[in-house]
């Protein structure tokens, strides 16, 4: 049966090939469309990078142009006077802290949800997964008063707790799926050898789901790094992260376009680096669960 279809396939495609000329014109149009839009998608980002290296005067004279004499002082100024050094450090601390805490608690919870049998497991899983659909920003007012009452308002720790919690549903969703695929023999063998539950988890199970942990961490990192709403409400300037720091910078130095470009690049570069390092995981993660 299978050999039959394999044998037939080339013949079928040869017969059904559309007329050559129309195909050629279509192909050219498709190339133009695709590369044309690629230019539209990239041009603003290129303009941002170029703008960050041009002087204020140059930008005012010619909106589009090359940095013939790269003005690195834009970065120096944004970094020190514009306050981006502190925003950058805050962003790193808050994002990394949230990702580590969120992924840590999620991997702990996902393990028994996927591999133990206990009463209420289905309900508990549903409780966590419901969070995938919850618009958590709508709870911002109670979050504010909650943090206020436990002394975590205007603190990075408070922000980290909220962020880490916001990532739990997605992380548990991905990690339980991975844990479920692992063969049972693994932990049975370990148990026979006398390993405790914690040891099985830490030394056998977690290393096996490392790819999933990478996906989960990446997918927390990007939106948290980019978020502006929670820091805007929950912390003051000295704890501001980059996106909300940008709004403050704009309010203060409205017309320093060159420095603003530098600030935009500073905010974006870490994500671009991350993307280039992990394109494969990101694309796979975006489309996770699509191909059955």
């Amino acid at each position: 049966m299978s050999t039959l279809t394999v044998d037939e396939a080339p013949a079928v495609s040869r017969v059904s090939r559309p007329p050559r000329r129309r195909g050629r014109a279509g192909a050219i149009a498709s190339v133009i469309l695709l590369w044309g839009y690629a230019a539209v998608a990239l041009a603003p980002l290129v303009l941002m990078a170029l703008g960050s290296l041009r002087t204020e005067q140059d930008l005012a004279d010619k909106p589009i142009g090359l940095p013939l004499h790269p003005a690195f002082e834009n970065y120096a100024k944004a970094w020190s006077e514009g306050g981006f050094s502190s925003y950058f450090v805050n962003s790193i601390v808050v994002t990394v802290g949230s990702v580590v805490l969120g992924a840590g608690v999620s991997v702990l919870a996902a393990y028994p949800l996927a591999r133990y049998r206990f009463r209420g497991r289905g309900l508990l899983t549903a409780y966590f997964l419901a969070g995938l659909m919850l618009p958590i920003r709508l709870g911002i007012v109670p979050v504010f008063y909650l943090l206020n009452s436990i002394g975590l308002i205007d603190s990075k720790i408070g922000l980290i707790c909220v962020y880490a919690a916001s990532g739990v549903p997605f992380s548990i969703f991905v990690l339980t799926a991975f844990f479920r695929q692992l063969p049972m023999e693994l932990e049975e063998a370990a148990r026979i050898d006398g390993a405790g539950e914690m040891r099985i988890f830490a030394q056998i199970m977690v290393p096996m789901v490392r790819p999933a942990l990478t996906t989960v961490a990446l997918f927390q990192f990007i939106p948290l790094w980019n978020d502006f709403f929670f820091p805007l409400v929950l912390v003051e300037d000295h704890n501001y992260t980059l996106p909300v720091g940008l709004t403050r910078f704009v309010a203060e130095f409205e017309s320093s376009y060159a420095e603003l470009y530098a600030g935009l690049v500073i905010t974006t570069i870490p994500l671009v680096l991350l993307f280039l390092l992990a394109t494969k995981q990101i694309v796979a993660g975006l489309t996770a669960g699509m191909s059955k």
Partner: peptide, 28 residues
Amino acid sequence: ARRRSLLIFLIPALALYSVFIVYPLISA
């Protein structure tokens, strides 16, 4: 032992998620 480790596994995520996501939404 297994039941005890079950709690250790589940409680951190449960606490974090309930306190900072579910409770605020119900409060709203």
